[in-house]
Computed example of a mutant assay.
Amino acid sequence: MIRGVTRRLMLLDTASLYFRAYFGVPESVRAPDGTPVNAVRGLLDFVARLVTDHRPDDLVACMDADWRPAWRVELIPSYKAHRVAQEHGEGPDAETVPDTLSPQVPVIEAVLDALGIARVGAAGYEADDVIGTLAGRAGGPVDIVTGDRDLFQLIDDRRGVRVLYPVKGMATLTAFDQAALHEKYGVDGPGYADLALLRGDPSDGLPGVPGIGEKTAARLLERFGDLAGIVAAADDPASPLTPTQRKRLTAAAAYLEVAPRVVRVATDVPLPAHDPALPAAPGDPAALDALNARWGLGGSLTRVLSALAR
């Protein structure tokens, strides 16, 4: 906020978005030399649409400097372990790993840099943590654009933080504020982190509490307030937990002790200096021209430049 002027900040969960772009744009979209650039061009189209539709003053492309931080793995060794196997072509889901996406990531980074769009990551942290930190520092409303439900935990009406969540590709975005979140999951922002760790998430290697699904977790949170209240109830023989629920929660005590530090987004990450202001023109026109010639960014680049100029 500068001189009483409220600035709207948009934070992109960049990897989540270019992954969706990769699967949403045909691989037949290629550079002049035949290299696939579907993720590059798809992400540029996403950015153009977001800037046009939501008119942010500031925009930051948040990056995974470390998508599997050692401090999270130390607490829960299974954290994203299956993705390591996939990257090495192991396991039953290995065939789902896109082998033409990784080479496009440096191109995406170079194009964002040439456009002058801030790109921020921090050693030892995921993009989620960068987003949590920047959202916490913001002096105005914040739109978080992500296909990752984990970031629902940052939703906060009081501070104007909402999540724009793609329903299908990026053609349709659903805006989640506290009312929408409560309607769908029965919890508020911070409560979503507790819901997620109780329910578990196989895609992130989080076991959850066996036998406690999403609906049961929501009911427990409604009754006992938060995870601490649920754990206290499990330790209290007089609490209204069923014997089965008490047994399941007690058996998962070691997991419940460490899971909050893994699931909850960090909000105190030391970030590099950056200028979040959305550029009206490319920061490095010569570099952008060279990238366009090399990768054939075509109409996608034109649309981004038009959106920024407006």
Results as ranks from 00 to 15, higher is better:
E74L: 08
A61D: 03
H82Q: 12
L43T: 03
T35F: 08
A61S: 12
Y22D: 09
E74H: 07
N38D: 03
P69D: 06
W67D: 15
T35N: 11
A81M: 01
A65I: 04
Q86D: 10
S78Q: 12
A21V: 02
A21R: 01
T35S: 15
R72G: 04
C62I: 06
L59K: 08
A65C: 09
A61K: 09
R55I: 06
S78D: 11
P56H: 13
S28C: 04
W67M: 15
D45S: 13
A81Q: 08
G34E: 03
V60C: 01
V60D: 01
V37W: 02
V84S: 12
V25M: 11
Y22R: 11
E74Y: 03
G89H: 10
R30N: 08
P69Y: 06
T35G: 10
L43R: 01
A39P: 00
V73P: 00
S78K: 09
R49K: 12
D57L: 10
Q86M: 15
N38K: 06
P56D: 15
D45C: 10
D58K: 10
I76W: 02
A48N: 01
R30S: 10
C62Q: 10
S28F: 00
V29Q: 11
L43H: 02
V47S: 02
H54T: 08
P26C: 09
H54Q: 10
H82T: 12
Y22L: 13
G89I: 11
W67G: 07
A48V: 02
R41S: 01
H82D: 08
I76L: 13
D33F: 04
C62L: 06
A39S: 10
D64A: 11
V51Q: 07
M63F: 03
R55P: 00
V73I: 13
V51E: 07
M63D: 04
L44H: 00
G89Y: 08
R72W: 02
L59H: 05
L43K: 02
F23S: 12
H54E: 11
E27K: 12
S28L: 07
E27F: 01
R55N: 07
V37F: 05
P36N: 14
R41Q: 05
R55A: 15
G24T: 05
T35L: 15
R68Y: 01
D45F: 01
V25R: 06
H82G: 04
